[in-house]
Design a protein around this nucleic acid. Structure first.
Ligand SMILES: [Zn+2]
Ligand SMILES: [Zn+2]
Ligand SMILES: [Zn+2]
Ligand SMILES: [Zn+2]
Lengths: 335, 335
DNA sequence: TAAAGAGGTCACGAGGTCAG
DNA sequence: CTGACCTCGTGACCTCTTTA
């Protein structure tokens, strides 16, 4: 018996095994494996997510939520899944295609369940009649919903608490809207952002007044695009960057467990992108990687600018606020 | 640390080892060894056989199919097996005896699983009643099946993808039928090809019409035979040539991996035959070797002629097409 | 007799199964 | 749902054979 004085980093049991990237006993390894494969979200903790803080190695079995997040905290990861880059790229690509299709072909149904937006469940859309013309507000609203739908298909979402999920989606989905809209425009060889049918990203009513600085508006339309054109970003890079971008908002509003979880996935997608850059660009891989990461900042900058614009829009044109079909959705999103 | 700046030609790991004919690390060497000994075919690639093309050094969980074919590509080979000529000749001889026995004593069973023909599994035959007389079509059909069965017993078959296996068998089996039929006739001291019981290789019905050029028919029956008689080919030479002949069809329909694999085995059997010729004929070895290789062309030429004959047969005698017991097999083979 | 290389051995980690 | 137990592919390490 050469019990190597090693202990499970999750429950403290004596063990010598290394599973899923951390020292852990076979029980915790099995638990982690099961948690990954289960489809339903984790039942939330009844003890303020403190089970492993208060009673470190004792009553772990009682709360799955805390046990799982302890696993994440000590570095456990679905190592197999995230080491098969080609398969992962294929999956990401499929998910993004679905998102694009929904954005273009679907619309918000008459009876829309607002609660499904920030819930674990998927958002139910309705088929759009092909001759329906969407306003800038309509497009924006659909983009927000399909981006959230996209984000919610990621595996780690089911491990966030209900509250964290809502905070996370609200904080991060608009960055994804911006980046995916920019990528769609980039694919159409445009040098300015627009919605898929060419509709401007700003409401038409801004033409009625002259108080917006045209440079400011064009900066929003073009700055992020210019960076993407400069880098000539590829679809694979875009897909991995998407994940990095929406995992980027480590808001302090999130619980510690939520932050740790999202951070760990940001790291995963970061190293996948790094790996991809190295394989694709050899020597110049690291340079390419850091250039691509700068796109995150460009996205964030444009997001700031858009926030400023909507502030001005409310001040200059309070009468032009969206009064159309889905005002309620917009209000719900800004709650 | 005398890390010799050398890298595994398969995975890129630093190594100084030379195994199975290539610079490769102990891991890849173990992998190759295991792959050779495993009985089941390789599970096919899920990434269009590009795992080692796109991401050369494969730091992620790579697929076994691509890893094995990368091994083949860099020149890895079961060197021990293919350096023991006497043992190899014994095995080849045994396999060919089995094939001959099946051709003479077996027949196609009532319930025949057509899908087994182009599959990795062996073809199930039924015992033939000794007084059953076979037509030329029946004999041809059995020869085709037993030749494919023979080809499928070779070790490298299990490394072909399902698709490549089918293409390979269809492209190459008829050359083996011709060569083995000719060899059987040669062993009976005939100077013309016939089936084992003396049945002519052409359907009896050709006697009903006079439109075939008798020189053309006799060229098919005798030309290849004449070359074999001239060279007085031995059984050992025949066995090695068989393998060279059926590895000779590097069809462009095959995947790159399939072509590389078959090419490498053709080279192996080629150098084995060369070695055999040198051992048996001393100084005249190289001459004998090139003479034997010319038989490949004679086989190919006769194959061309037979194709022409079947074209004529369909035109001249459409009513005499094989309507016997195993029409379905013939149709399946020509699909 | 020493180095190279073929092939055997085995602990490890991933993942599946099943009684409790 | 849990965790003990099982199977299987992996690769480090070892032993045996060959050869210069
Ligand atoms: Zn544990
Ligand atoms: Zn808890
Ligand atoms: Zn290697
Ligand atoms: Zn592959």
């Amino acid at each position: 018996m050469h019990s190597t004085n090693q202990f499970c980093t999750v429950c403290g049991q004596s063990t010598s095994l290394f599973n899923y990237g951390a020292m852990c006993c076979s029980a915790c390894s099995s638990f982690f494996r099961r948690s990954l494969s289960v489809k339903t979200p984790l039942r939330s903790c009844q003890n303020s997510e403190l089970c492993f803080k208060q009673y470190n190695r004792a009553v772990y079995a009682e709360c799955k939520f805390c046990r799982f997040h302890k696993c994440v905290q000590v570095g456990m990861l679905n190592t197999q899944k995230y080491s098969d880059l080609p398969k992962l790229m294929h999956e990401l690509s499929h998910l993004d295609e679905e998102r694009k299709k929904k954005t273009v072909n679907m619309t918000i149904p008459e009876c829309f369940d607002l609660s499904s937006i920030f819930n674990y469940t998927s958002i139910k859309f309705a088929k759009k009649s092909p001759n329906l013309h969407l306003s800038s507000h309509d497009w924006g609203c659909m983009h927000q919903l399909t981006s959230m739908e996209f984000i919610k298909t990621f595996q780690f979402i089911k491990f966030l608490s209900m509250q964290d999920l809502k905070i996370f989606l609200k904080r991060t989905h608009f960055n994804h809207v911006l980046f995916s809209t920019a990528m769609a425009s980039f694919s159409c060889k445009q040098d300015f952002m627009s919605f898929p049918d060419g509709t401007d990203v700003f409401p038409e009513s801004i033409a009625n007044v002259t108080c917006y600085n045209p440079h400011f508006l064009n900066r929003i339309r073009c700055k992020l695009m210019a960076r993407m054109i400069e880098l000539n970003i590829t679809t694979s890079e875009y897909l991995l960057l998407s994940a990095i971008i929406f995992c980027n908002s480590v808001s302090t509003d999130l619980s510690e467990n939520g932050r740790t979880l999202i951070n760990s996935y940001q790291k995963v997608y970061g190293s996948l992108l790094f790996q991809y850059c190295e394989e694709t660009n050899q020597k110049n891989g690291p340079l390419r990687f850091s250039e691509l990461l700068s796109v995150c900042h460009a996205v964030a900058k444009t997001h700031e600018d858009i926030k400023k614009f909507f502030l001005l829009f409310q001040v200059y044109q309070p009468e032009a606020q969206p009064v159309q079909l889905h005002q309620d959705v917009i209000e719900y999103l800004s709650m």
